[in-house]
Design a protein around this nucleic acid. Sequence first.
DNA 1: GTGGTCTAGACCACT
DNA 2: GTGGTCTAGACCACC
Lengths: 123, 123, 123, 123
Amino acid sequence: MILINLDYQGRIPIYEQIVSIIERYVALGILKPKEQIPSIRELASNLGINPNTVKKAYDILEQKKVIITISTKGTYISEKTDEVLEQKKQEELEKLEHQVELLRNLGVTDQEMIALIHKKNKD
Amino acid sequence: MILINLDYQGRIPIYEQIVSIIERYVALGILKPKEQIPSIRELASNLGINPNTVKKAYDILEQKKVIITISTKGTYISEKTDEVLEQKKQEELEKLEHQVELLRNLGVTDQEMIALIHKKNKD
Amino acid sequence: MILINLDYQGRIPIYEQIVSIIERYVALGILKPKEQIPSIRELASNLGINPNTVKKAYDILEQKKVIITISTKGTYISEKTDEVLEQKKQEELEKLEHQVELLRNLGVTDQEMIALIHKKNKD
Amino acid sequence: MILINLDYQGRIPIYEQIVSIIERYVALGILKPKEQIPSIRELASNLGINPNTVKKAYDILEQKKVIITISTKGTYISEKTDEVLEQKKQEELEKLEHQVELLRNLGVTDQEMIALIHKKNKD
DNA sequence: GTGGTCTAGACCACT
DNA sequence: GTGGTCTAGACCACC
């Protein structure tokens, strides 16, 4: 059973939220290679949303080679999860860069930012 | 004259882009307290967009107490821009925290992240 | 079906009238938590006004946390209507205080004011 | 010198604010019968507003017989300020009635309201 | 000239 | 069908 929390209010469409949550779970190793994931209908009913929405998410994930659907058998996590992880890392590191840049423009020093990283580590 | 570059394609609405650009300019001190900003019509025509869109942006900025609008007179930067800056900083620092947390979960070490901050500084 | 009577003439804008009517209905318990309210288009057509005007009212109500709107699903009364009621009460009690103060300055005695309250009760 | 605080943001026009402030001062006896009040130009320059706006306010006040303008001599408070006071009282008592009604609908008891009146008296 | 409100109607994404 | 955004343009009061 996968834990998926959806935000129905924000601007990010449901199907996209599903995509990124599953991607993250794969990157984190919570979902492992060759593992089977819920069918479209099952997940849809669990989340209380329309199957078309889940279908769209699975289509995108398949296109991104994160999952593989085998007709009549089910849907499985791809075997090459390393690549997914690596790609995800790069994406998120880029976001970090932007955020650092933005904060520097607001007058926040490197020291403050580094301190925040260290502090966070102790939590 | 304010420099505003808009992305007419992305998922972020135009009015929200205007909001965050002006907010940033205030935080950076480029727009100063009590300074008058362009009238709704003027900015709209400069940006080639509809006055209603600018109005919506100004409404939000007023609600956030970044600007003050005086009917039939014009629109002005609030007197307390320090608070705006501080609030903006806090918001952005929180985002940094989340991003750091996320990357740590993906297996990125503090060293890597700190290195990225230093590297960015040399650009 | 919500009963909404609008004054199209006065100085109070239509969208604000809608806001305060719905707020009052929530405070009075006529509209209950989680209850769905009419769609923007529906209410607009019922009232014979433009959907944009209703949208603006709903935006303000959402910002005040009186309602919650879920895109493509509909608009619902917030779950915490108690707070709405309490907040509304406080607002209106403050207005009463100001009015009492003003009348006292004009030379009206407490007795006269209290008499008015009792009289009103018999209507 | 009359103390006039204007709200440039609200929905009430400046000239109307001037009217009701002067009316209130007359009702309170701060401005006395036959007393001279500032010329249009003088008041306008004191308030930093357009003389036309003050003119409009004075016109309304004259029409309401609160003030009298004698060409080339100046503007004076009317001799019959009692009527102004009485009229003002009635207006404000009506507002009190509405407010009481509204609060009663919100579930506030007469006792609570009366208590508020007494409490206010001790301030 | 300024902002404030409202209309009419279009297009979009999502479900 | 729903809400979200945007356009085009009108009318108003105020200054």
